[in-house]
Simulated assay, not measured.
Amino acid sequence: MSTGRLVTGSVPAPRHPLPGPPPEARLVIETRGLTKRYGAQAAVDDVDLHVRAGQRYGFLGPNGSGKTTLVRMLLGLVFPTRGEIRVLGHEVPRQVHEILPRIGAMVEGPAAYGHLSGRSNLDLLDASGPGRRSGRRRRVDDALERVGLAGVDRRAVRTYSLGMRQRLGLAGALLTQPDLLILDEPTNGLDPHGIREIRELLVELNEAGTTVFLSSHLLTEIEALCTDVGVVDRGRLVLEEPLDAVRRETGRVVVDTPDVDRALAVLGAAVVARTEAGGLVVVPADDSGAQGLAAHLVGAGVRLDALAPEKVSLEDVVVKLTGPGSDRAGERSGGVRRP
């Protein structure tokens, strides 16, 4: 499925650098009481979202939880029933024309004309944007090379695999060297190598100044890529935190050892669980923590492969806060919760 390596190390700066306060203080996406109703059904329900410049923000939730509807409202593709939206300092949808040239987006999968080549599709997309004709070839060349499609740019898109179409959609989002990337499932259909390449590209773009807002159901990708996370369930935002705060330490220690039976005999009731990989989850007996525990085990003749503080997983937090999908019955969540 992979058609080439992503080119890294030469990411251009955003076309419109964000002036003013430090990145950690600036909101590039903010919603207040954002709601979208379809009849009696609230697809998005009273959401207050906060995305700051420089973040890689992961937006998670079960199928049917309102993720894509909210993303479409951020881009002015769907009008809210009520509430406020500000993106890059402008009101949406009223001033959306002011910000679209500064945003790269891919929502609900990449759109393309199947009978045209990937290059021709990007030519048409660039022609509809703010870029001048004189620089179009260079912009298209750069976008194709960055997503690994330079070698197949003349092939008709109808011959592309799903992963190649995802790459083409991302190339279209990069044409304007955006200040803000809004992406909906950008790694869908990619093989493991392609997923890693896209992740590395997004990190590099972010480090060059582009804020990334990524909607996905792949928890492992969010954990590997994002600095902050928002979780939505049945239309309501139930968590919004830095990822490091979500994955906090539990106070327990994970011990990996080839001498499991001996470790169990030494630790006794201090062992409270086993990991999927066969390790032991231990509550240290005193304030000495992991260091004291290691010394105790080694002193008792137990060999150690690894010993580290246990952390809450993003998967555990999301499963606890959300249901399995849009067909779940029950009471609606009551607002933002902390893990």
Rank of each mutant, 00 (worst) to 15 (best):
G151L: 05
V147F: 08
R274Q: 14
S288E: 15
A13N: 05
T159I: 14
T69Q: 12
V231L: 01
G4V: 07
L6N: 07
G9K: 14
L88I: 03
D228E: 11
P17G: 02
N206A: 14
P192N: 03
L168M: 06
Q95Y: 02
V232I: 15
S216R: 00
G118F: 00
I29T: 12
V28A: 02
L149Q: 14
I182P: 06
D228M: 13
S134C: 13
V212Q: 05
L183A: 09
K311W: 11
A277W: 10
R158I: 03
P258Y: 13
H217W: 06
S117R: 06
G66H: 14
R338A: 15
R102C: 01
L201Y: 04
E145R: 14
L18A: 02
T257Q: 13
V212G: 06
F213N: 12
V229S: 02
D327R: 09
G66Q: 15
R37Y: 09
V152I: 06
G163R: 12
L181D: 05
G148A: 12
G66E: 14
L267G: 09
A42P: 15
Q177N: 08
A245C: 12
P17Q: 04
L219D: 10
R196V: 07
I195A: 03
K36D: 02
I182G: 01
L218H: 12
L237Q: 05
L116A: 15
R37A: 15
G118T: 06
L239S: 10
P242V: 11
G76L: 11
E24I: 13
G289R: 10
I222F: 02
V266L: 07
I99Q: 00
E223P: 09
